[in-house]
Amino acid sequence: MLLKEIRAIAGETLVISPNDQDAEHANTNWLGAPPHERMGLSADEVVAAFEETAELLRDQVAGKHQGPVTFYVWHDGQAGQLRCSAGSCPHDKLPFGSPYRTTSDLHSIVTEFLVDRAPGAIAWGQLEPVPIPSDPAAEADEFPVWVCDLQP
């Protein structure tokens, strides 16, 4: 089911609106799978589905938009989901409210998602106290985001 959902993204019309990037939130997809489905999938299969989707989205964008158009994928561990989106932003200006780092390694992001046997849950013993930062500019850990340029 997960692979089918990923491939279905390519059939959706992308909203690319550099002057109204809030409208581009319509491109965001939340993808989950129960643990038994995750165990039956390989990271290679999921990566291939995302790469196929990116190619089809690239065809959809070709010649229609000026400026950057980026497709990107990340693992939201708190929600237990893979998420992906596309927008008229360069790799270094993705619309995240927390620090991220771009990567070409989609395999590790997908693997992290697939090995999560309790998606969206944190065991009580794994909770750690969060100190109040003395420096308001202190940054949280960066999370990896796979990026793919959709402009030819």
Rank of each mutant, 00 (worst) to 15 (best):
Leu3Gly: 04
Lys4Met: 10
Glu5His: 15
Ile6Lys: 07
Ile9Gln: 02
Glu12Trp: 07
Glu12Asn: 09
Val15Ser: 14
Val15Pro: 10
Val15Ile: 15
Ser17Cys: 11
Asp20Lys: 00
Gln21Ala: 05
Asp22His: 10
Thr28Gly: 02
Pro34Val: 10
His36Ile: 07
Glu37Gly: 01
Gly40Asn: 13
Ser42Gln: 09
Ala49His: 04
Gln60Met: 11
Gly63Ser: 13
Gly63Pro: 08
Gly67Asp: 06
Tyr72Trp: 12
Gly80His: 06
Arg83Ser: 09
Gly87Pro: 01
Leu94Trp: 06
Leu94Lys: 08
Pro95Thr: 08
Gly97Ala: 14
Thr102Trp: 04
Thr103Pro: 06
Ser104Met: 02
Ser104Pro: 00
Asp105Phe: 06
Leu106Arg: 07
Ser108Lys: 14
Ile109Phe: 05
Phe113Glu: 06
Val115Pro: 00
Asp116Leu: 10
Asp116Val: 07
Trp124Arg: 14
Gly125Thr: 12
Gly125Pro: 01
Gln126Arg: 12
Pro131Arg: 13
Pro131Ser: 12
Pro136Glu: 03
Ala137Pro: 00
Ala138Phe: 05
Ala140Ser: 12
Asp141Glu: 13
Asp141Val: 13
Glu142Asn: 11
Glu142Leu: 09
Glu142Gly: 09
Trp146Met: 00
Cys148Val: 08
Gln151Gly: 14
Pro152Trp: 08
